[in-house]
């Protein structure tokens, strides 16, 4: 959707035309779900996060000044939501780690591991599984920066804007992410298919 059309659609939504909001959802949902899916590693949570982003967009439409495009706004919201989601998941794993009884389930089985939902993986095959596992070793921010740069091909300047970080910090996260991935995928280097 180009900027001019988006402006018209936004004006219609503000005038109470709900159908226009659906136009907006349809225009962005594929990309937004895809981004969330890449960031969290499973479809169900990705759809929930994408849905929450659209609900927040709807809630904030009255104050949406158009400083950024709807797409950038959604990217920013989805990325922040997934960072929060991943932090909560890691916290859950830590809490369950201190479980008292051995009869309880293993925390890694209970926590939604982005690398452990084979039926839900969009990356098929050994390479996909290895990448998903390696991505699981990254911090939430490293994963977001790497995904936005490598997969979504967003320039670092835009990533800095999306994550509201200094460009230097984004570069450091990217460098660290690639370093970890190289370490994790060392044996596959050059042989990934």
């Amino acid at each position: 959707m180009d900027a001019a059309t988006e402006k018209i659609v936004l004006a219609r939504i503000r005038d109470g035309d709900e159908a226009s909001f659906e136009v907006l959802v349809r225009a962005h949902s594929a990309k937004i779900i895809s981004l969330a899916w890449r960031l969290v590693g499973n479809r169900e949570d990705a759809e929930d996060i994408a849905q929450e982003a659209f609900i927040r967009l709807h809630r904030n439409l009255a104050s949406f000044r158009g400083d950024s495009s709807v797409s950038t706004w959604l990217y920013r919201t989805v990325t922040r939501l997934t960072i929060d989601y991943q932090r909560r998941q890691k916290l859950k794993q830590k809490i369950f780690f201190f479980r008292r009884s051995n009869a309880e389930h293993d925390p890694y089985e209970l926590a939604a591991d982005p690398a452990a939902s084979p039926g839900d993986q969009y990356l098929a095959g050994e390479a996909g599984r290895r990448l998903a596992a390696a991505m699981g070793k990254l911090s939430a921010r490293q994963r977001a920066v790497f995904t936005l740069r490598h997969h979504e091909e967003l320039p670092l300047k835009e990533i800095a804007a999306v994550l509201q970080l200094e460009e230097g910090t984004v570069k450091a996260h990217l460098h660290r992410a690639v370093h970890i991935l190289r370490k994790e995928l060392k044996d596959l280097q050059g042989g990934l298919t």
Partner: peptide
């Protein structure tokens, strides 16, 4: 470069029916 270019880049995709369902859910 050999590592980064070899990483799978396939984007997860939903069918148009699935996207319709998602839109309906959001609405």
């Amino acid at each position: 470069q050999s590592l980064l270019t070899a990483l799978p880049t396939a984007a997860p995709k939903l069918s148009s029916a699935e996207l319709d369902r998602f839109s309906a859910r959001v609405m």
